[in-house]
Computed example of a mutant assay.
Amino acid sequence: MTRNTSYSPQAPDRASLEDSEGDLLLEFGTDWCGHCQAAQAGIARALSQHPALTHLKIEDGKGRPLGRSYSVKLWPTLILLRNGQEIARCVRPLEAADVNRLLQA
């Protein structure tokens, strides 16, 4: 699967995420965020071991209701959904091992 390199300003609605099947990784952040930029190498390394996992990079911030609906407060925040339900999250991962722990949930 091709990985997104930028955060998309077009967020899916919460209902469609809750109706999803299988595993889905949501990544909330912004392209200009230093923490988000620093985390990208580790996230990419971890995701390279999970090529079938759908990964959505969602731009977050003021006026962005999806992040608020998941109580996102810091960037990047990664949320793993299984069949539309949150099963784990990781806030400000520093290395691939942080993301790997999330993906093993």
Rank of each mutant, 00 (worst) to 15 (best):
Q37T: 14
Q37P: 10
Q37A: 01
A38Y: 03
A38N: 12
A39E: 08
A39H: 07
A39Q: 09
A39N: 09
A39K: 07
Q40G: 01
Q40V: 07
A41R: 14
A41Q: 12
A41S: 02
G42M: 12
G42I: 00
G42H: 08
G42Q: 03
G42T: 01
G42K: 05
G42A: 04
I43R: 03
I43H: 04
I43F: 06
A44S: 09
A44P: 04
A44R: 06
A44M: 04
A44Q: 14
A46Q: 06
A46C: 08
A46S: 05
A46I: 06
A46L: 04
L47V: 01
L47H: 06
L47D: 08
L47C: 05
L47G: 03
L47A: 02
S48A: 15
S48V: 02
S48C: 11
S48I: 06
S48N: 12
Q49V: 05
Q49M: 11
H50C: 08
H50I: 03
H50R: 11
H50P: 08
P51H: 05
P51Q: 10
A52I: 05
L53I: 02
T54H: 10
T54A: 14
H55R: 15
H55K: 06
H55D: 11
L56N: 08
L56E: 10
L56K: 07
L56Y: 12
L56S: 10
K57A: 12
K57P: 03
K57F: 14
K57R: 15
K57T: 13
K57N: 10
K57D: 13
I58N: 07
I58A: 03
I58H: 10
E59L: 08
E59K: 15
E59T: 02
D60S: 15
D60H: 14
D60Y: 13
D60F: 14
D60M: 15
D60N: 13
G61R: 06
G61E: 07
G61Q: 09
G61M: 02
K62L: 08
G63E: 13
G63V: 09
G63Y: 11
G63T: 04
G63W: 11
G63F: 09
R64M: 09
R64Y: 04
P65E: 04
P65A: 13
L66Q: 02
L66R: 05
G67S: 04
G67N: 03
G67T: 00
R68V: 15
R68F: 08
R68W: 03
R68N: 12
S69P: 09
S69L: 12
S69V: 05
S69T: 03
S69I: 02
Y70A: 01
Y70L: 00
S71D: 15
S71L: 04
S71C: 09
S71T: 04
V72R: 07
V72Y: 02
V72T: 02
V72C: 05
V72F: 08
K73C: 08
K73I: 10
K73V: 12
K73N: 13
K73A: 13
L74G: 01
L74C: 10
L74S: 10
W75M: 12
W75P: 06
W75R: 08
W75T: 14
W75F: 14
W75S: 12
W75G: 05
P76I: 00
P76T: 00
P76Q: 00
P76K: 02
T77S: 04
T77V: 01
T77E: 04
L78M: 06
